[in-house]
């Protein structure tokens, strides 16, 4: 990116390219996949090395692992009820996969795989298929009364039922769009402010002073993005829990 004739290429950062040299290229192993593997390994390492000491008074890593476990466990039980313990492994995996994806994406030379709608849509579809299967296996055909609110007038059935079905089907869509849009927005803003900085610096000595503005903004933005990274993972997990609650309790 040269200083003059500079255009802001905010979306180029989301382009996939193959990682791991010729081996990765031959099987189309992209940097996104690489970061997924890294995230998975990091989560496993956190749980393994966190649980290994088994100290009564936990060290830092063990405290982090216990905190993570407790946090999701409490979320499951609070949102779904006692049955929520059954879904704990699923919600835990989902939360940490999304969280580590968001956080790893903030590191330099890294890639936020949650900024691709293909990834978030696949996660959301997994959630909604699981929720539907759980609801069908617990309630059987009774599940379909879910689309009929209590005490609604019969005459309104042709309107209410399609609206409820659309509302149900919109869940994975909104779930995936929310996460993907938040991550893309954050990374685009980073890129735009960083480009401002380079453009300003290209304008000479005064530009160097002016470039401090976007730099400071990017520093603030980084803090904000850390919050967003956590919040979006939390929202994803909580909404999964709420949908599971609906599936288990149905009305």
């Amino acid at each position: 990116m040269a200083g003059e004739a500079h255009t802001i290429d905010a979306l180029g950062q989301f382009k996939l390219h193959t990682a791991l040299g010729p081996i990765g290229a031959s099987v189309n192993f992209s940097q996104s996949n690489l970061m997924m593997v890294v995230a998975g390994v990091l989560v496993l390492a956190l749980m393994y090395f966190g649980a290994k000491p088994r100290a009564v008074v936990p060290g830092r890593l063990q405290a982090a692992a216990e905190l993570a476990y407790d946090f999701i466990h409490k979320m499951c039980v609070d949102q779904i009820g006692e049955e929520g313990k059954r879904f704990f492994p699923f919600v835990f995996t989902l939360f940490f996969f999304v969280l580590f994806g968001n956080l790893l994406g903030l590191l330099p030379f890294s890639f936020a795989y949650t900024s691709h709608i293909a990834v978030t849509a696949a996660l959301a579809l997994t959630v909604i298929v699981l929720v539907t299967v759980v609801a069908l296996s617990i309630h059987g055909m009774h599940f379909f009364t879910y689309f009929w609110p209590h005490g609604a007038p019969k005459a309104l059935a042709p309107i209410i039922i399609p609206v409820e079905v659309i509302s149900y089907l919109s869940r994975p869509v909104s779930l995936s769009i929310r996460l993907f849009a938040n991550m893309v927005a954050g990374h685009v803003m980073f890129e735009v402010f960083a480009s401002f900085m380079i453009m300003m610096a290209g304008a000479g000595a005064i530009g160097y002073v002016g470039a401090v503005g976007p730099l400071a903004l990017n520093v603030v933005l980084m803090g904000f993005e850390l919050l967003v990274a956590f919040l979006q993972a939390y929202v994803f997990a909580v909404l999964t829990c709420i949908y599971l609650h609906d599936a288990v309790h149905l009305h």
């Binding site: 509302s167 869940r171 869509v173 909104s174 769009i177 929310r178 938040n182 919040l231 929202v235």
Partner: peptide
């Protein structure tokens, strides 16, 4: 959540149902 978070959710919700419809 923050007001911005709520606004974001509302917007996404409206968009998602429209897309599905």
């Amino acid at each position: 959540a923050s007001a911005m978070g709520v606004g974001m959710r509302v917007g996404v919700e409206l968009l998602a149902t429209l897309v599905v419809g």
